[in-house]
Nucleic acid binder design. Structure first.
Lengths: 186, 186
DNA sequence: CCGTGATGTCATCAACTGTAGACAACGACT
DNA sequence: AGTCGTTGTCTACAGTTGATGACATCACGG
């Protein structure tokens, strides 16, 4: 067993690493991968930006790690899950993976990792839900469309283009989202 | 760096102007405002990029003009309109205004013009449709949510994050979109 | 106490961006 | 022909971006 130091060290690689990860998650969610700069991330984390290169290799490496440490898989047709998801987004932003749903990334690594996370956490659970509910035809297409629609709503509420959507309470948001997503069973 | 020798072209301001507009519309729709560079736009238009500054004042001015020359207002609950809209998007891209639905722009002018176009062409017609159909409660919120969801689907089909959505025929796309949007009446 | 690796700081680079301005080529006019 | 506004070409610049490497400073084991 390794001895755990309780006294906070002035120099703590683990701490700066997690600070960078947290700041990156916020900024990537807010402005997308390209929009967030390493200098901003460093400033928000209270850390020198060049440490990103040291601990994550590059900005892309930081993004990939950000994507991995995300929300657990959620079935969008489950109202409780949807509430939890929308509630968290209204507080801490929308998450980097949803950005990838509507916007292609230039780098392949970024695109692939984001897509994979999106499917693992949202598309696949929904497709399986549709299958168990009896809707087998086009279940993959339906699931993808529903997730895409959800991404549109979640991002639209933050984009500034939809004032009523941005001003809505979580309950209202849940209600209208449920109304829309329910149609996926057709 | 390869230097492309251009064939001697007739001097025509109107022509270069429209060439720049067309190229800009494609690239803005494809990569967003920030993602499209003036050099790319110029290259696609077969025109020197600095002419953007001459004819439109700046990249932002070019974007604003691009936004103005868009699709006519469409009611998303009208199936024919939806078909036409999705069909055009599958051919010539998704249009710059839908980008603004899910992604905030840094500059205020850009954001405001995009939002205005989005509401004039999609949100307001849909809200009025909902009102005449009897759904008066929260009609603004419902209309915005539906447009945001539609934007998610349209952009998702092009983002590379949804393979089934990207491979779907226009008919399939229309079908699943109608299923989802119909729920907005709830 | 001291050295050595870990951690942080700093200056700087090359690439890219939008934009400006000097210059050249064209063409309609007297 | 000659003039001059219009249109196109080219270079350059200041700003930003991600990334690199040299240097400084700390922490811990000997």
């Amino acid at each position: 067993m390794t001895v755990i130091k309780l006294a906070p060290r002035r120099r703590d690689a683990t701490r700066t690493r997690s600070a960078l990860l947290a700041a990156a998650a916020e900024l990537f969610a807010d402005r997308g991968y390209d929009g967030a700069t390493v200098r901003e991330i460093g400033e928000r984390a209270g850390v020198d930006p060049t440490l990103i290169a040291r601990y994550f290799g590059s900005k892309a490496g930081l993004y990939l790690e950000t994507v991995q440490t995300g929300e657990p898989p959620a079935d969008l047709l489950n109202r409780d899950r949807l509430v939890a998801l929308l509630d968290r987004m209204s507080r801490s932003g929308v998450g980097p993976v949803l950005q990838a749903a509507v916007r292609p990334h230039a780098e392949d690594d970024i695109q692939r990792a984001s897509t994979e996370a999106l499917h693992d956490r949202l598309v696949t659970p929904l497709r399986e839900r549709l299958a168990t509910d009896g809707t087998t035809a086009d279940s993959q297409l339906r699931a993808e469309a529903a997730v895409a629609a959800f991404a549109g709503i979640a991002l639209g509420a933050k984009s500034g283009a939809f004032p009523a959507l941005a001003a809505a309470t979580t309950e209202q948001l849940v209600s209208v989202t449920v109304s829309l997503l329910d149609g996926v069973r057709s």
